[in-house]
Design a protein around this nucleic acid. Structure first.
Length: 468
RNA sequence: GGCCCCGUGGUGUAUCGGUUAGCACGCCAGGUUUUCAACCUGGAAGGGCGGGUUCGACUCCCGCCGGGGCUACCA
């Protein structure tokens, strides 16, 4: 049998990480990165570690950390180690920094950002800045970058990407106060946490040579990198808040299922290689390989998610469906909700669409003047009168019985079926859209149905519509 | 400006030197139908542009154009 993974990756020892910075909600792009890491770990039997990239004290908040963790939990993506705070590792960072300072691989430079900009103006933007070691050891700490040669990233997805050292600045790895910067902390952490494969967004590709340089200075073996393309909105711009449901939280509130979101998001930039579209989580785990991820950026298209979500909704068994609706609406599961869900299941594409379809079973009909005017024309009175009569004589109020009772009416009145059923629908629900009329009537029950038909009839008598 | 990545229909993708360029969402038309969905059938719609290489390029090379990322004592 052929082995799937490249020889360089020993399956069980794979260690990946998801390292979000808690500067905002987890959005779809981050969710996909998390998913890919999770799939890689579960596929190989390796480990996933969750690390919170919180070294930006200004923007990182506890609330954001909580929100990200909740989003991951909702997505049902678990991790094996963590969450670890990056700031908590400050001592390790400081130690690594000191080693570099001692070895001369890094040095203090008194130059400010303005100084560097001025230097660039003079020497050209394509030339990497080289600082001057400050004799007093003050100023930010910069890493010494080789004068020439390339730093090459051997990327699982991109292939070999070369970055000329000559155009790379001696970049800052620690502030004057000694606190380390992102590219340094990441490199140190990935190395010390034994990360074997870094799967992250494309926006980090340009950062990778810096991390490689840090790792090289530290004398440690770098992990393998896999940079996945970024996600864009329908307008082609980088995905952001302005693109509708962009965060996991919003997706959840819009009534999507975690399973559908996982399936959909997995397909953004990755495919199983054949024409399969609906892949459950087990299949995703079995078939996902980071090296199969595409190179071009993808656009998040909510329309397809909606379709896919509808598929998942219809495939759920009734108990789980009812449970999901109850949770979404903040209600208790009971027999009535169960019946409601049963008759609505095939109609809704999202959890949010369920309640409008079944609320008439729990509340008075909604007020919808447009629906009333459109439906309650002249024929409505005779249709409703006949329906009431037929229903009133019913012993058992099952959908089949209701259908048998109502079904002869259109012909008897010489009306199209819709002319009979729509008035009933509007009478009992208030709207023109509902689950099947027979099921709806049956679910509502005899007393309430008759009652609602009666009040519709009363209204028709009091305020007759002009002839249709 | 500099460095880097990307470019198959509206969207996600398959094919990766020879195909009627496949599939899915969406869209359009028709069917089914008690509404809305669902479902069924059919249809429109694609290799950014220009040069090469080759008997033959969506597939390889170069240029251009377009999109994106990084360029902070942010992450």
């Amino acid at each position: 049998m052929e082995t799937w993974a490249p020889m360089s990756i020993s399956e069980k020892d794979l260690r990946v990480r998801f390292a979000p910075s808690p500067t905002g909600a987890l959005h779809v792009g981050g969710a996909r990165t998390a998913l890919y890491n999770w799939l890689a770990a579960r596929h190989s039997g390796g480990k996933l570690v969750l690390r919170i990239e919180d070294t930006d004290l200004e923007r990182s908040t506890e609330a954001n950390v909580r929100q990200i963790i909740e989003a991951l939990e909702w997505l049902e993506l678990d991790w094996d180690e963590g969450p670890l705070s990056q700031v908590a590792r400050a001592p390790e960072h400081a130690a690594a920094l000191q080693r570099l300072l001692d070895s001369g691989a890094a040095y203090h430079d008194a130059a400010t950002a303005d100084d560097v900009r001025a230097w660039k103006n003079e020497h050209g933007a394509g030339k990497g800045y080289r600082g001057i070691p400050d004799p007093d050891g003050s100023g930010a700490v910069r890493l010494r970058v080789p004068a020439d040669g390339d730093t090459v990233v051997d990327d699982l997805i991109r292939g070999e990407v070369r970055f000329p050292n000559a155009s790379q600045d001696d970049f800052v790895i620690a502030r004057a106060d000694g606190s380390v910067l992102y590219n340094f902390a990441v490199a140190v952490d990935d190395a010390e946490m034994g990360i074997t494969e870094v799967i992250r967004g494309d926006d980090h590709l340009s950062n990778t040579p810096k991390q490689l340089l840090v790792l090289g200075a530290l004398g440690v073996e770098p992990p393998r990198y896999a940079h996945v393309p970024l996600l864009h909105g329908p307008d082609g711009k980088k995905l952001s808040k302005r693109h509708g449901a962009a965060s996991v939280q919003e997706l959840r509130e819009a009534g999507y299922l975690a399973s559908a979101v996982r399936n959909y998001v997995a397909l953004l930039g990755w495919g199983p290689g054949d024409d399969e579209t609906l892949l459950d989580t087990a299949e995703l785990i079995a078939r996902f390989r980071p090296e199969d991820v595409g190179r071009s950026s993808a656009v998040f298209d909510e329309k397809k998610l909606r379709w896919m979500n509808g598929r998942y909704m219809r495939e759920m068994d009734l108990d789980r469906y009812t449970e999901a609706v109850a949770t979404f609406e903040g209600r208790k599961v009971d027999e009535r909700l169960r019946v409601a869900c049963m008759i609505a299941q095939e109609k809704a594409q999202t959890l949010a669409e369920v309640w409008p379809l079944i609320r008439f079973l729990f509340e008075e009909p909604v007020e919808d003047e447009k629906a009333w005017r459109k439906t309650m024309k002249d024929h409505a009175t005779s249709a409703l009168t006949s329906a009431r009569e037929a229903l009133a004589g019913l012993e058992s109020f099952e959908a089949a019985g209701v259908e048998a009772a109502l079904e002869p009416i259109p012909e008897r009145l010489n009306l199209k079926p819709g002319k009979v059923y729509q008035p009933i629908r509007v009478a009992i629900t208030g709207t023109t859209v509902s689950p099947g009329i027979f099921e709806s009537v049956a679910a509502l029950g005899k007393v309430e149905t008759l009652d609602r038909i009666d009040s519709a009839l009363r209204r028709l008598a009091t305020a007759p519509e002009p002839a249709a």
